[in-house]
Simulated assay, not measured.
Amino acid sequence: MVIQEKLSTEPKMRTRDVSIFYGDKKAVDSVSIDIPTEFVTAFIGPSGCGKSTFLRALNRMNDTIASARVDGRIELDGEDIYHSSMDVVQLRARVGMVFQKPNPFPKSIFENVAYGPRIHGLAEGRTELQEIVEKSLRRAGLWEEVKDRLEESGTALSGGQQQRLCIARAIAVQPEVILMDEPCSALDPIATAKIEELIDELRGRYAIVIVTHSMQQAARVSQRTAFFHLGRMVEYGHTSDIFTNPTEERTKDYITGRYG
Rank of each mutant, 00 (worst) to 15 (best):
A156P: 02
T155C: 13
A123H: 08
Q130T: 02
V133T: 08
R139N: 09
L129F: 04
R149C: 06
S153A: 14
N112R: 15
S158E: 08
S108P: 11
I119F: 12
K135I: 00
F99M: 11
R118L: 04
R94G: 03
F105V: 04
L142E: 03
G96S: 14
E131H: 12
N112H: 14
V133A: 08
I119A: 11
L150Y: 03
L122R: 05
Y115I: 01
V113Q: 11
R138D: 03
E131Y: 04
N103M: 13
Q100S: 08
I132A: 10
V95M: 10
S136A: 15
Y115G: 08
G154F: 07
N103F: 07
V146S: 10
S136F: 13
E152S: 14
A156N: 15
R149A: 02
Q100T: 04
E111I: 02
N112T: 09
L129P: 11
M97Y: 06
V98P: 13
P104H: 12
R126E: 08
G125T: 02
S108H: 06
I109T: 07
T127G: 07
E134I: 03
K135F: 09
Y115C: 14
L137S: 08
T127R: 13
S108A: 10
E124L: 01
A93K: 15
R94H: 08
E131S: 15
V95E: 10
E144W: 00
V113G: 12
R126V: 00
R149D: 02
S158H: 09
F99S: 05
E152V: 01
V146L: 04
T127I: 00
R126M: 00
S136Q: 12
V146Y: 03
